[in-house]
Amino acid sequence: MTNSNTITTKLRAVLLLAILAIMQVQPVFASDKDSITLVNANWQTLYDEDGVQLKLANCHIFNAQQNIIVLTFNAREFSMQVGVSDTLIETSRMAESLNADFAINGSFFDFAGPALTFIKKHGRIHPSGVSPEQTSRNNWGLVVAGSNSRSVKIIPSAYGDMPEKSAAYDNVLASYPLLLKGRTICLDSCDYVPNKFNNRNPRSLVAIDSSGNVAFVTLDGRADGKAMGMTLYEECKMALWLGFTDALNLDGGGSTTLWARSLGIVNCPSDNKKFDHEGERKVSNILYIKRLFSRFSN
């Protein structure tokens, strides 16, 4: 190789590093302003009783309008479980049939019906489909709980070790990517590459804070000027700013739905291309919670 070729190669390497540095720094600069905007947003309380708090904020962060709903519950008072159906059904209808108190859409599925993820319900592994793309991903996570457990955990996983890692738990749902573990962003390099999945979309996630409280979170999208959705990296930053230590991305897009027994659909599902509560998509699995003890018990 000639000296000129060597210099050109080195120059290209330096320029590439500079571009990558700029790409990394820009979100950090944005985070100072956006984190303050998010925390100080006009959070509207939709529900606040019996160990559950449900809040909504519509604010401008990441250079776009965002509609964020956070349902936080005390895991000592609620049992988190997995709902699964062999035929597609709306999150709200599945939750009602299971006598749930609150629910969020779950992980990935085939539009023909079956789940495309690892599911364990009441101690039994549910037969699920899988695609080659999924088996190749390493940044999976498991959200796990016992049937009467007073704690919920998010565990890093790869597709092959899910039965082993879930052995001690009765209710398990696998999804990807793992967003946060111990306040560290866990995205794989492929999760930064622009594509249909990684670009701004409606998002759903389950998260845990340092006190062990659990949250179901939805980020609406596909509604110009009202809710644009987030990239995976933006989703991570938002979860950090809200005080979560661990977080796992669930199925998003038109599946994103958050339901409450007393309120119905509380976010704005996007499948009808309108910013209302009517665009709910049929799914194959959900996460839901039920109170462990009756509020009227002694």
Rank of each mutant, 00 (worst) to 15 (best):
M1I: 12
T8A: 12
K10R: 13
L11R: 11
L16C: 12
L16P: 06
A21E: 08
Q24K: 12
P27H: 12
V28S: 15
D32N: 14
S35P: 06
L38V: 09
V39A: 12
Q44Y: 09
Q44S: 11
L46P: 10
L46D: 11
D48C: 04
G51L: 05
A57N: 14
A57H: 06
Q65L: 13
Q65I: 13
N67P: 07
I68F: 05
I69W: 07
T72R: 11
F73E: 03
N74A: 13
A75Q: 14
A75Y: 04
R76S: 12
R76L: 10
E77T: 09
F78R: 05
S79C: 11
Q81I: 11
Q81Y: 09
V84H: 08
A95W: 02
E96D: 10
D101R: 07
F102P: 06
I104L: 00
I104C: 01
G106H: 00
F108A: 03
F111K: 13
A112P: 04
G113T: 06
A115E: 11
L116G: 05
T117L: 06
K120F: 02
K121P: 09
K121A: 14
G123F: 03
G123S: 06
R124T: 13
S128K: 03
G129I: 04
V130P: 04
E133L: 08
T135K: 14
S136T: 09
N139M: 10
W140A: 14
G141W: 00
L142H: 01
V143K: 02
S147A: 15
S149G: 14
S149W: 03
S149L: 05
R150F: 09
I154A: 15
I154L: 15
S157D: 12
A158D: 08
A158M: 12
G160Y: 14
G160M: 13
S166W: 01
A167H: 04
A168D: 11
D170A: 14
D170G: 15
N171F: 02
N171I: 03
A174Q: 03
A174K: 03
A174T: 02
S175Y: 01
L180G: 02
K181G: 10
R183S: 13
I185S: 02
C186Q: 15
L187P: 01
V193T: 07
V193F: 10
N195H: 06
K196A: 13
K196E: 10
N198R: 02
N199P: 05
A207V: 03
A207Y: 00
I208H: 07
I208Q: 10
S211L: 14
N213F: 15
A215T: 02
T218E: 01
T218K: 01
D220Y: 01
G221A: 04
A223P: 06
G225H: 12
K226W: 04
T231Q: 01
Y233C: 06
E234L: 08
E234T: 04
C236W: 01
A239W: 01
L240I: 02
W241I: 10
D246P: 08
D246K: 08
L250I: 01
G254N: 03
T256K: 01
L258P: 01
W259F: 03
I265V: 15
K273G: 03
D276H: 08
E278H: 15
E278T: 14
Y288L: 07
K290I: 05
L292I: 13
L292S: 13
F296N: 10
